[in-house]
Amino acid sequence: MSLHKFANPARFVRLSSPLLPWLWISTALLLGVGLVLALFVAPADYQQGESVRIMYVHVPAAWMSMFVYSVMAVASAVALVWRHPLADLTAKASAPIGAAFTVLALATGSLWGQPMWGTWWVWDARLTSVLVLLFLYLGYMALWQAFDDPQKAGRATAVLTLVGAINVPIIKFSVDWWNTLHQPATVSSLSGPSLPASMLIPLLLMAVGFMTFFSALLIIRIQREIIARKIRTLQMLQANPEAAAVTAASAEPS
């Protein structure tokens, strides 16, 4: 089938590898220019002074924490419904990146909250829902480890991801639905960004840089997962050629 033709892991490696240098160059440029603007050019805030510069790493990390989960949710749906060969691998390869961005969002938020709000942490709806997101990522990775059979692991983790996906809109709208200590959205508010261009431009450069970084890292990690699967098949063949061949053949896509 045509869908599966494009999902061929070998084809993925062949098509994605030439993208990598471009993605890394873009990442270096975006983050390089973004950092210079964020640290040297962007103005201090009239209320928050220089501490506002934490925004340029905190906000992109927080955006990515939700974006990576959304990627995993789409991949999981595709894995469950269409049994797309790369879908499981995409979700699996994304999880540690998403978890890392979530840790960054929480930690940099904490470092920003202490001087501005007067506390490292509060249990308001926004902070709590982001902590739940971190636990979803960690639960996802733990669940993969709990299964020996990658097919079963793929199904179980995909279900977990989709159930947890409800948390993403909750994070996004928590600041509008309930009163929280965390302020409402600045950039994506209905009335347009309440941020001057001198702050918005470095923020967007950093955010796009985080995105290209994620894309490049994801390609590397998916390629690694493909190789890991090949290794496993080879090892099974070596250990028990007949049994491995039978198992593999019976598991062919329907």
């Binding site: 209320q47 501005m116 709000w117 007067g118 508010s189």
Partner: peptide
């Protein structure tokens, strides 16, 4: 605890 709003304005402005 202080709560701040979603508006950012350059200090000099």
């Amino acid at each position: 605890l202080a709560k701040h709003d979603e508006n950012y304005i350059p200090e000099n402005v």
